[in-house]
Simulated scan of single mutants.
Amino acid sequence: MAVTLRDIANKAGVSIATVSRILNNDATLSVNEKTRQRVLDTAERFNYTKHKRSQSNRTQKIAVVQWYSLTQELDDLYYMAIRMEIERSAQQRGLQTVPIYQNNMEDIPQDVTGIIAIGKFSDSQVEKFRLVTPNIVFVDYDSLAAGYDCLVPDFENAVRSVISEFCNEGINDIGMLAGTETTTDNETVPDLRRFYFESDLRQRGLYHPEFIFAGNYTSMSGYQVMKKAIADLGNRLPHGIFIANDPMAVGALKAVQEAKISIPNRLAMISFNDTALVKYVYPSMSAVHVATDEMAHSAVDMMIKRLQNPDNDPCKTVVGTHLIKRQTTR
Rank of each mutant, 00 (worst) to 15 (best):
M1K: 15
T4E: 08
L5E: 07
D7E: 12
I8W: 07
L23K: 08
D26W: 05
A27H: 15
N32E: 00
E33M: 14
K34H: 13
T42E: 06
E44C: 13
E44I: 14
T49A: 09
V65F: 00
Q66P: 03
Q66M: 14
W67S: 09
W67D: 10
T71M: 12
T71Y: 11
Y79K: 03
M80N: 14
R83D: 10
E85V: 15
E85N: 15
I86E: 07
E87L: 06
R93A: 08
R93G: 12
L95H: 05
D107H: 14
V112E: 04
T113G: 00
I115L: 06
I116W: 05
A117E: 09
D123L: 11
S124Q: 13
Q125K: 02
K128Q: 12
I136N: 00
V137S: 00
D140Q: 09
D142I: 12
D142M: 05
A146E: 14
G147L: 04
V152G: 07
E156S: 10
V159P: 02
R160G: 05
R160P: 04
V162G: 09
V162Y: 02
S164W: 10
N172Y: 11
T184A: 02
T188G: 06
V189I: 10
P190K: 04
R193E: 04
S199F: 09
D200F: 11
L201S: 02
R202E: 08
Q203C: 00
R204I: 04
R204N: 00
G205E: 07
L206I: 10
L206V: 02
H208R: 06
P209Y: 07
P209T: 08
F213G: 09
T218P: 11
S219V: 00
K228T: 15
A231S: 13
A231H: 13
R236N: 14
V250I: 03
A252V: 06
L253D: 02
A259P: 12
S262A: 13
S262L: 13
S262T: 14
I263S: 11
P264M: 03
M269T: 03
S271K: 11
F272V: 04
F272C: 07
D274P: 04
T275A: 03
A276T: 14
L277H: 02
Y282H: 14
P283C: 08
V288R: 03
H289K: 10
A291V: 01
D293W: 15
A299H: 09
D301N: 01
I304W: 04
K305A: 15
K305C: 11
L307F: 10
D311T: 11
D311W: 10
P314H: 01
C315A: 11
I324E: 15
T329L: 09
R330S: 14
